[in-house]
Structure formats: structure tokens, C-alpha cells
């Protein structure tokens, strides 16, 4: 369990990091919290020639208010996301999903941006990022560009990030006053999701005015449960209408099969957990 040899650079600005990445060439890798990358290196499933460490770049850390959106620096740790007052107020879904990630040690090291860039369909922050219509701001040799979440996740562990680009921040439109819940299903507490549902809802009187539902691990990328959202909007926020809407949860999903779940079971879970997520959001 010793990684293959590699060079190591720890720049202190984004510009330097972009430059270092370009110089290091194809086989370079960014290291953020290292919580996904290090196991891969230690098992020698990957052997990058150099690592560009983002941990010494202060501008990549923290959350700021930018009018109708929050901007979360990619190197903000899970621990900081969990405790950030702006996130609690304007993007509660993100904090709730982050609460379910791993264990305290991992949450102190692992980063929000690292999770997004890693793009594991079982990762817990992708579905919330999708449901909240976030945008990824990436920096490369030609400057910065913005990619909406819906276009960012392309396949298993594959994003719109080019090898010479760095994810610098994530713009999260404010969802102030929305109800939110992340319903996660796994076999042991500190594990990733077998299936999970990110739900956030805005009510108006007793009626559901807007709803966003994202599914974790129901495809090679996070999935938006549009049919559920449509079935909810304009309905009274009752157990019955929630249950009826949740029946649509598995539509269009294409989950993987593993020892823990086949397609039938995963799709069944998606329906049950969607109902529960929305119920819990309403109750919370």
C-alpha cells in the first residue's frame, strides 16, 4: 500500500496551480483532501507522475454571499460546509447531505470541490449540486468558464473538466426558506450511498410551489427526478400526494448492479426513499 513515486507541487495561488498543472503534463493530478485520491494511489489503481496540491491556496476556501447565489470555494472542507451559516440559511440541502458523508476524520480533510470533481455517482454531494441547479466555475490556461451541473457530470468519474483545468468554485443559487432533506440508504454508517435522495421543496400556504429532487447512484451520473418534481408542484403537501409523486422516482434511471442491489431493488428503493425524503423535508 505504498503509492508509486510522484513529484509534488504545492502552489499558493490558482494561477500558479493552473500553470503547474499545464507544466506537469497529461499524467499530473490535482490533490484536494486526498480522501478519494490517496486510496487509489495506494492501491496503485492510478500512478500520476505529479501531484498539484491545492491545500495551500487560501482563495479556494470558504463561502461567500454573492447576491442571489452563494459561492463555495472548491477547497472548503465537508466539515466547514456542515457548519457554515450561509449554507444553512440558503442551501440547507447541501449541509444535510454533507452530514451523511463518511466520518469526522474524512470530513475534516475531504473537500466539497474534490467530491464534485471526483464525480463518483455514489458520492453524496452530486445529487444536491444537481438539484440546486449549481454552476461549476473552472479555471484553465485560457481563463475561467462556467459549466451548469446538468452538463458537468458526464459519466462514472468523468466530468466536463479538462485535464488542464481546476474546479475553483461552485455557485449555488439561493434556496432561502426551502425545506430540505437528504435521505441516504447504505449498509454501514460510514459508507457511501447505495441509493440516496436529495429533496428540497418550497411551499406556499399548504401547497407545494416548487420542488427539486436529485437521485444519488441511480445512474452513472446524478439524476434529476423531473417527473417527481412535476407531480409535486401545485399539489397540497399531503402524505398522499407525496406518495403518489414518489412513484415516478425511478423513471428514466439506469442504476448499476452490484452485490448490494440489483436494478429492481435500487429502483424500488428510489421510490420509497423519495417519498421519505420529501416527507422528512416537509417535517423539518
Amino acid at each position: 500500500m505504498i503509492p508509486a513515486p510522484f513529484d509534488y507541487v504545492a502552489p499558493s495561488t490558482v494561477d500558479d496551480a493552473v500553470r503547474a498543472l499545464a507544466e506537469a503534463g497529461e499524467d499530473a493530478k490535482i490533490i484536494a483532501g486526498g480522501q478519494s485520491l490517496l486510496p487509489v494511489l495506494r492501491m496503485r489503481l492510478a500512478a500520476p507522475t505529479s501531484l498539484i496540491d491545492l491545500n495551500r491556496i487560501p482563495e479556494l476556501r470558504g463561502v461567500r454571499d454573492d447576491g442571489d447565489a452563494l459561492v463555495i470555494g472548491s477547497m472548503t472542507t465537508h466539515y466547514d460546509v456542515q457548519r457554515d451559516p450561509l449554507i444553512a440559511e440558503h442551501a440547507a440541502l447541501l449541509a444535510k447531505a454533507t452530514d451523511t458523508v463518511a466520518d469526522p476524520q474524512v470530513r475534516h480533510r475531504g473537500t466539497f470541490g474534490g467530491s464534485i470533481a471526483h464525480a463518483d455517482p455514489a458520492g453524496d454531494l452530486l445529487a444536491p449540486a444537481l438539484a440546486l441547479d449549481t454552476e461549476m466555475v473552472v479555471a484553465g490556461p485560457d481563463g475561467r468558464r462556467t459549466v451548469p451541473a446538468a452538463d458537468f457530470f458526464e459519466d462514472f468519474f468523468t466530468t466536463a473538466l479538462r485535464p488542464d483545468e481546476i474546479l475553483v468554485e461552485v455557485r449555488v443559487p439561493k434556496h432561502t426558506g426551502w425545506h430540505a432533506h437528504y435521505e441516504k440508504f447504505n449498509r454501514v454508517a460510514q459508507a457511501w450511498s447505495m441509493v440516496a435522495v436529495a429533496a428540497t421543496v418550497r411551499t406556499d400556504g399548504g401547497t407545494i410551489a416548487e420542488a427539486r429532487v436529485g437521485l444519488t447512484n441511480m445512474s452513472s451520473v446524478p439524476v434529476r427526478a423531473r417527473a417527481v418534481e412535476e407531480a409535486l408542484v401545485g399539489r397540497p403537501a399531503t402524505a398522499e400526494s407525496i406518495r403518489a409523486a414518489a412513484e415516478h422516482a425511478a423513471e428514466g434511471t439506469n442504476p448499476t448492479v452490484d452485490g448490494n442491489a440489483d436494478v429492481e431493488y435500487r429502483q424500488h428503493l428510489a421510490r420509497v426513499l423519495t417519498g421519505r425524503a420529501i416527507q422528512a423535508a416537509m417535517a423539518g
Binding site: S36, M43, L45, D120, D258
Partner: peptide
């Protein structure tokens, strides 16, 4: 005895298939 009891995505590996390399 449905399915294998099998592997759960977990640890730092998530959906990475440590046995065969790459995604499961």
C-alpha cells in the same frame, strides 16, 4: 439469498472497483 451479499461502495474507493480497476 438474493444477489451477492457483495460489495457496497465505500471507504475512499466509493464506486471504484478495486478488484478489476475502474468503475464497477
Amino acid at each position: 439469498a438474493a444477489g451477492g451479499p457483495g460489495a457496497e461502495a465505500g471507504g475512499g474507493l466509493g464506486s471504484i472497483d478495486a478488484t478489476h480497476g475502474g468503475a464497477q
